[in-house]
Amino acid sequence: MESLRFHARLFALYFAQYVKARLAYRADFATAVLASFLGTAASFSVVLLLFSRFPHLAGWSFPEIVFLYGFSLLPYGLFSVLSANLYEFADRYLVEGRFDRILLRPVSPLFQIFFESFRLESLQEVVTGGAAVAWAVSRLPDLSPLGLALLPLWAVFGAVIYLSVFGILTASSFWIEDRVGLAPPVFNLMAFGRYPITIYDLKVKVLLSTVIPFAFASFYPTTLALKRADFTPYFWAVPAVALLFALLNRALWRRGIARYGSTGS
């Protein structure tokens, strides 16, 4: 409990520091937010275009699709804000040697890696996603109140799933001397989780639900609110999946750090 309070305070400080440093260059930050927003708007437009051509694709109405897609931006946005350092971990920490400094501080190394840098402009995705969900809710009269109430919490679980999967991929840098790594192809898979999983064939469904559980991050969390009873068990499995992958991530980092300790690289 003490440790939790300590880390929460530290997180707030790290975040405040980052925001302060980032806002020192206002124009740069404004451009980044705009660029990020245009990216989100573009991919959203593709979805809208697609569904203007095929209304009721695989039995999903237009507002439902907006709900799904809007929600998917919440865990994804949170993930984007917090994952800035994962991409550069091998370069900035292992190659340049900053990881030594991380190990010299009495704070969890993983905590420091995740929270030393942020992708602040991605908060825009959370806002945009929230707005899309709000609009969809106004058009969908028959939603489950419990499903709606749990939505924010499930968005956090979703972000934990994303962060853990990419944390696991990043930890591979301790073993594989490859600056690019496995992250980019998996990153592309994230887009799959934003559509109703029912439109895919079985292989993709299995992949997104088990190996790389992105369906648990963005699709299943919406199913309770949308009253898709066939998916309800998956909805309730989301916290367990998040916990499982978070633990897996932590275990892998521990092994990676131990390996760093014995090889120095």
Binding site: D100, L103, L104, A258, G261, S262, G264
Partner: peptide, 10 residues
């Protein structure tokens, strides 16, 4: 690095 705990000795 070993004395500061960064590296584990053989």
């Amino acid at each position: 690095k070993m004395l500061t705990g960064i590296l584990t000795p053989t």
